[in-house]
Amino acid sequence: MRFDSPSPEATAAAARALADCLDAGGLILALVGPLGAGKTVFVKGLAEGLGIDPARVASPTFVIASEYPTRSTATGCLAHVDLFRIASGAELEATGFLDLLEPGAVLAVEWADRLPGVLPQDRLELRIDRSADAARPDARVLHGEALGPCARAVLERWQKALEGLGDPAGPARHSPP
C-alpha cells in the first residue's frame, strides 16, 4: 500500500481513516521513518479517530510509553510507544511494555525498526518517508505492509478508505463518536 500525503494535515486524515478500520482485534502498528518524518503526527491523527483529544498526545520519547483510554467501543486502549531511547528487549520489558500487549489494544510503536524482534509478528508496518521533491518539504510518502492476518484485514479496509478520501489535501474531518 502506498499513500502520497501532501501535508501533515493529510497524514493525520489518513491516520483518522485507519482508526475507522479497526475492530475488536486491535492493531500493532510499527512506525518507521527518519527524524521529523511525522510519526507522532500520524499517531495524533489515529488518536483523534479513536475519540481521543489529539492535543493530549505528545511525543512519548521521554516516558517510553503513554496509554490513552479510547472512547471507541470497538477497540481497547491506545498505547503510544517510542523505542528511540531503548537499546534492548530487556530494557523495553523493564518499562512494562508486555502489559500493553492486551487483546484488542491499539499499539502504535515509533522507531519500531530499532528492535523489530520485540514486536508481535502480526503487525502493520508503516514507513513514512520525506518526499524526494525538495520543493515540497511537507510532503510524505506512506508505505504500509501487513505482516500477519489481522493486520492484513485492517490494511485492506484502510486501502479502500484511503481511495474514498479523494483529494488528500482536503480531508473530510472525522468527528469523534
Partner: peptide
C-alpha cells in the same frame, strides 16, 4: 505546554542528527 516534543527532547534529537 508543548503540543508535540519537549524542548530537552529537541536538544537530544538535534544532537543525534
Amino acid at each position: 505546554e508543548t503540543r508535540d516534543d519537549a524542548v530537552g527532547e529537541a536538544f537530544d534529537k538535534v544532537a543525534r542528527v
